[in-house]
Design a binder for these strands. Structure first.
Lengths: 248, 248
DNA sequence: GGCCGCAAACTTGCATACTAGTTTTCTACA
DNA sequence: TGTAGAAAACTAGTATGCAAGTTTGCGGCC
């Protein structure tokens, strides 16, 4: 039920040379995705207050579609609405990140074990190798690498006929992604990640569920290791204990 | 990010003796929960068209809060909105159920393994036994048993400090719950379920992760076994292949 | 200078009005 | 009677206006 699975009539906001809107105005879904991207990319920093009116003006619509878009982001824990007070970008919650990580670990362990047990088609294995090649090529471009990273994981979900599951994860992964966005250019050596991907792929190839599980666990534990370093480095973005609604 | 975690100012719709609304009108969240309950309890049958206007009248509000409530249910895959054509209760999708089951299995395996590894407090173990007693007492009342069933599972998520995770699951569990609502009074002997719960609890008590995992798998496989029987018995409620938006 | 208090300028929540599109129904004509 | 076509009655999407509450800032007073 990812925000993204259904519809993408408009990928971005189409504007003319004068900066004014052109063509059909963006609808709820595209507004939500646009705001979501801004939050994950930390263009909208935690604690920032966003105004429905302001966003409506920015997207050239009325408050209604903006409100509906924000509602979806509330469910994803990316924003908090305080009635009559304001709408705020939530801080990155360590608790939330840990929860997302637990969920993702549980899910990916199940996916890779299943993939290793039932085996994957030759075509999918080839695709996985291609994606790893892409990751190597994208070593210097964090954003491009992130896409290839997601693609790699999604591939195995597809492989066992549970492709939609990954889109489910997307929602909870939102918290996560902000951390990842912070950490990618800084801390984790991309070589390490690619090596771990290779290990995961190899375990599936040799049909070894136990090795697959182990590889996934190692891979995902990498991210949490980084989390705490970042918490110290960015105390302004991360909140420690309580998880969601807080004003600045 | 369950619909339910935040707020429950109004449990139902408060009405006076004349049937008119009394007190504060229900807000978005309570409307969403009310509709959600009706869908899961199959009071709103798959394929039914629901009208925003009609719902607004029923809740004594304008279309706006109803729309916002429906939007959340779209994300949960319980309704599908066809622009300018109508809003429909989705059919129970076998694919969706299988997906939800995979997710739940993965998550609960992780939870119970974790619980068995790190052990649970004496208080929690006691609470778990109490809940099982409640299940025994509720044997004749499916709805009451369902609540006790959920409580049991949620308890262990709480036990490992991942209580919020269960509310995450709620969302995906929606599809699931419709099946469960169908199957409880009919097919699965409640004795069996309670026995499985006892086995899960025992595995945690003896700190045996492997046994815990096995017990969870057996327990949850029970539900899918029932699914296919129900698919044959209720072809009007269940759709086989494609998963979400379809008009009657 | 510092503080109290009121008013103006915000905020979101909700209701209403209007638009564009689809379905249905009813009428007119053969 | 049967069919074609237009009009009326729906649908959801969006814009706008109003209500209720919070914050902010200014003015007067001590």
């Amino acid at each position: 039920m990812g925000s993204d699975s259904r519809l993408g009539k408009f990928d971005g906001i189409r504007r003319g040379e004068d900066g004014q809107l052109v063509g059909a105005p963006p609808s709820t879904a595209s507004i939500r995705d646009a705001i979501r991207r801004d939050i994950i990319a930390l263009k909208l920093k935690p604690g920032t207050r966003v105004s429905e009116n302001e966003l409506a003006a920015r997207f050239g619509t009325s408050r209604t579609p903006v409100r509906e878009a924000l509602l979806g982001l509330v469910d994803q824990g990316l924003i908090a609405v305080l009635p009559q007070r304001g709408t705020y970008i939530t801080y990155i919650s360590l608790k939330g990140v840990q929860r997302a990580r637990f969920l993702r670990l549980a899910l990916e362990v199940a996916i890779f074990r299943s993939a290793a047990e039932q085996g994957l088609s030759r075509a999918l294995m080839g695709a996985a190798e291609d994606v790893i090649d892409e990751q190597v090529a994208a070593e210097a471009d964090p954003e491009r690498f992130t896409r290839a990273d997601d693609a790699f994981h999604r591939l195995f979900a597809d492989g066992i006929g549970m492709g939609d599951l990954w889109t489910v994860l997307e929602q909870e992964k939102a918290q996560f992604d902000r951390i990842r966005f912070l950490s990618l250019p800084n801390v984790t050596p991309i070589d390490t990640l690619i090596g771990q991907h290779r290990a995961m792929l190899e375990a599936v190839r040799t049909r070894d569920p136990v090795a697959a599980e182990e590889a996934v666990k190692i891979h995902l534990s990498e991210v949490l290791k980084v989390t705490f370093e970042l918490a110290e480095r960015h105390p302004d973005l991360i909140i420690d204990d309580l998880d969601a609604p807080q004003s600045p």
